[in-house]
């Protein structure tokens, strides 16, 4: 209990946030890594997931491979890639992308699949091309679930991005590992609190977005 109070005290001290290694910079790095990883993952996983949902092709492979990658320990992936790519941001980025892709992929194809097949059929029967059906009907109607996948991925990556510090990159893992090494539990716990706050704020933003989407007529 006292250590928690000390941690809060440390987080609420202005000095902890300033300077080149302060919480402000670390939280910024943490956010940047997370958004970068989720963004890069979405670049691959969104089109792939939409394609799978629209065509039904590759679904079996997607289910199996996402199951497998979800079982991979992130720390193991970082270590493995770091052996090849060396110290720095590359290894953690690869690991975060491996972590984020399955969630985004699954959200995208289940979002498209959740759209009423009769509506999709009607859209095709009016003469919409497959692309028009996807972008004009399936994506807008499935958007809430598609966004749900990105939300889950973001939460996972933000919670895991502390591991970037394990191979010399920045982020909130730095004060966390530093505190651990120096037995400075206030710092360690304080850094964890900031990670949690970051995750909660981002998740709330996504929740808000999804709630706004749910109010649109016809959203699956």
């Amino acid at each position: 209990m006292t250590s928690l109070l000390e941690a809060l005290d440390w987080v609420l001290t202005a000095d902890s946030w300033t300077g080149p290694g302060g919480l402000g910079v670390r939280a910024g790095e943490h956010l940047l890594y997370s958004l970068l990883a989720v963004g890069l993952s979405a670049l691959v996983a969104l089109p792939a997931g939409l394609f799978i949902g629209h065509t039904g092709r590759g679904r079996g492979i997607a289910v199996v491979s996402t199951g497998v990658t979800r079982a991979l320990p992130t720390l193991g992936v970082i270590t493995l890639v770091a052996l090849a790519a060396g110290i720095g941001l590359t290894a953690p980025m690869v690991a975060f992308i491996v972590l984020a892709v399955p969630s985004i992929l699954a959200g995208a194809y289940s979002g498209v699949e959740a759209v009423d097949p009769q509506i999709v059929d009607a859209a095709r029967a009016q003469g919409m091309s497959p692309r028009q059906v996807l972008l004009g009907v399936e994506v807008p109607l499935g958007l809430r679930l598609i966004l749900g996948g990105v939300r889950l991925a973001t939460l996972q990556v933000v919670a895991t991005a502390t591991l970037a510090a394990y191979v010399g990159a920045g982020g909130l893992g730095r004060p966390l590992f530093l505190g651990l090494r120096n037995h400075d539990y206030a710092m360690m716990l304080g850094a964890s609190i900031v990670v949690i706050l970051l995750a909660v704020v981002l998740d709330a933003l996504f929740a808000l977005g999804q709630r706004l989407l749910a109010r649109r007529p016809g959203t699956a």
Partner: peptide, 19 residues
């Protein structure tokens, strides 16, 4: 696609776009 755009089609469940 061209064929369907040249033929009107009315469905039992109306098939209207909910959005």
């Amino acid at each position: 696609v061209a064929l369907r755009r040249s033929i009107g089609y009315v469905m039992q469940n109306s098939g209207l776009m909910p959005h």
